[in-house]
Write a protein that binds this DNA or RNA. Structure first.
Lengths: 159, 159
DNA sequence: CCGGTATTGACTATTACTGACCTATACAGT
DNA sequence: ACTGTATAGGTCAGTAATAGTCAATACCGG
């Protein structure tokens, strides 16, 4: 029962695999017809799957000869990676948000499964302390979670 | 007797046995209907049984085509190794003691550099919180440190 | 009886998808 | 140049389908 969104996402990913280039171009209307859906479905896929958080930038142009271009960003330098981490984690993060970040980084090959597991254990422990005996506000807990997550990810990237 | 939680836990484990894959997918609603319970019972089973500490990662998505995926990192967690961890860490540990343990495990090839670093970062963060804004006694801090260290080590003593 | 574990359900949050309406661009005719 | 028109893509709000959270309650082993 694959969802349409995932099907389209996979299709676009296969386009990236076929060519070596870091960017591909699409026509929204054609893609929509190909998958038998409304054009705005394509926007939904782009907004939810090809985000900066996942390492993509989307450009487009309307009107005659309109197009949509998806660019895959490559972060090589350690300091680029660090600032990317800081961007996607932010100053506050929920448990769900943290899991999304970890899943995304894992999918992109930036962390492996064991590292992901360790980070989850540490965050869970910290959150238990915060909600238990320390009795910290949820707002503050999310700020602490973001700080811990960034520290752990930074240390991974620099090592 | 056989509590529902244990029944569901066993059912999920049997799914892992049936397929060789390291991950399985579920629909919370279907599973709940299958066992005639409320959907949130499934969350309880996942929270209490399929934790990162036990070597599992749980991913999920709400909304249309939602799912719950359970990834098993650890195939068998030998009890001797766990009790070994408990022995060498104990119920309380100093920062230096923790470093000695990590260095020893690293030398014996049981953890790699990145894992060691991750654990140190998490412990330092927790200790900073305890000694800083929460003013926890040194004795209690060492107990928390031991707890965190054991949890993280247990989660990655595998294969 | 006590303390922890298990169960429930009301309320909340998120996601996929659609369709009506909005905006931008190129180009041809004047 | 100016303007109209055809041809793109963008936005937003609504709906249905899922999953998550939390606190109250029930249950069970010691």
């Amino acid at each position: 029962m694959a969802s349409l969104t995932r099907v389209i996402e996979n299709y676009i990913n296969s386009l990236f695999s076929e060519v070596e280039e870091p960017s591909i171009s699409l026509r929204r209307k054609e893609l929509a017809e190909h998958f038998g859906c409304v054009p705005s479905q394509i926007n939904y896929v782009l907004r939810s799957r090809f985000t900066p958080e996942r390492g993509y930038i989307v450009e487009s142009q309307r009107g005659g000869h309109g197009f949509i271009r998806i660019v895959r960003i490559c972060y090589d330098m350690p300091d680029e990676k660090i600032s990317h981490i800081d961007d996607i984690v932010g100053d506050s993060i929920t448990e769900q948000g943290a899991r999304r970040v970890l899943a995304s980084l894992h999918e992109r090959g930036m962390i492996d499964m064991k590292e992901r597991l360790l980070i989850e254990v540490a965050m869970r422990h910290t959150d238990e302390l915060g909600s238990g005996e320390f009795d910290i506000s949820p707002y503050r807990r999310n700020a602490l979670a973001a700080e811990l997550l960034k520290r752990m990810l930074r240390s991974l990237i620099l090592s």
